[in-house]
Design a protein around this nucleic acid. Structure first.
Lengths: 209, 209
DNA sequence: CCCATAACGGTACTCCAGTTTCGTTAATCA
DNA sequence: TGATTAACGAAACTGGAGTACCGTTATGGG
């Protein structure tokens, strides 16, 4: 009694189910890049993916839900971090990676859409937060190495430095029409490195009492 | 012949027309703060504003259009810039102002909504870009004064410094669940100041050839 | 003050996003 | 390889977002 039915696609994830997911995410990504978030329509996506619209509604439910899954899918294909031997070098590598992603028509549109979706729905927002938490955690070690090398103060908040690199790039993507060029990426990295060296990201002493 | 009919509300903007706009924007802001962007529904807003839904559709047309007008309305009530005598002081004042705005339930929700709307529609995106252009231009003089005082290099891109202050705050608002506290604002200002002093925002030499 | 008409607003309508229903297909397990 | 049933998908349905129509209100100019 009362046994909840599992989400569709979880009990028999193989074969057809996986094929449907691939086709739908592909169609959703295409539509997003071509026509933007506002034109995402589940029935239309079902048509493009050559899949029943009932299926799309059953598995994803809403546009924001679909976008969240698109984000999950993208998170699985993340590129590994490289190491250059200096903080500035590592941060530049990170900044350029972020820039390339946001400047790409397909992925840039996706990120805009995901942010819009996150502003609409709490559940999508959490998926987005988790995504960035993971990304930041992936890159934080390069700041730790800089601490070990003595490049930046010991109590530096490593996560905050990584976030400082991305922030200006996202800000530009969302609030201006200026192109996201490599110079902008390098500047973001340099600013973060300079501020970190100056001790701006040293964790507050509140906890040391 | 062919004389286009002006937008409703432009020929007789007084009295009733203005009252309707006030009521609708008020209702829209309330709904936004209470229920979020996803629940913005023009018919519902008309009900709350005690205004005919036909009127709302005629004057604003879409949710994104209404949100854009809400932004315009807010832009008109901007606070004047203060001066503290040092770059860091001025940037901190700016950062704290931005933080207070974003942390406010009503205005924070509005900004999230506007960004979501801008991701949906090109027209709203332009309104957003214009808004930030104006805001940045308003605060840029404090960087110019810092140049004049010799605090930062002469060729510093003043606008870029102001944007660098806001970026981390918006990034945090959108991608994390961490609170937007005053410490975050101060850190954003300190980072921008440190980077500016280090010459990160010096305009590229490309144009000097 | 009065007129022309801009702007509002109620009602009825349309259309399609999202749901329900139920038969069909195929993934998994023994 | 066959039984079980998860997952798919076609078709019919429904509710409400957005539109059309037209009478009413009241602004702004003379």
């Amino acid at each position: 009694m009362g046994a909840e039915v599992a989400e569709p696609g979880t009990v028999r994830p193989g074969g057809r189910t996986a094929r449907v997911r691939t086709a739908v995410l592909q169609a959703a990504g295409d539509t997003l890049a071509e026509r933007g978030f506002a034109h995402l329509d589940l029935a239309d996506i079902a048509r493009r993916a050559e899949v029943g619209k009932t299926t799309v509604y059953r598995r994803w439910g809403t546009v924001t839900g679909l976008v969240a899954d698109l984000l999950t899918d993208m998170a699985e294909q993340s590129l590994p971090r490289t190491e250059s031997g200096s903080l500035l070098g590592d941060l530049k590598a990170n900044a350029r990676l972020v820039r390339r992603t946001l400047a790409d028509p397909r992925q840039g549109a996706l990120f805009k859409a995901v942010i819009a979706a996150a502003a609409c729905e709490e559940k999508t927002a959490e998926a987005l937060h988790r995504f960035y938490e993971i990304r930041v955690k992936e890159w934080a070690p390069c700041v730790q190495q800089a601490i070990d090398r003595g490049e930046v103060p010991k109590a530096t908040d490593t996560h905050e430095v990584i976030r400082a690199v991305s922030a200006p790039l996202y800000y530009r993507l969302l609030t201006s029409r200026d192109p996201l060029d490599e110079a902008a990426a390098d500047r973001a990295a340099e600013a973060a490195a300079a501020a970190a060296r100056a001790g701006v990201y040293v964790r507050s002493e509140a906890g040391l009492g």
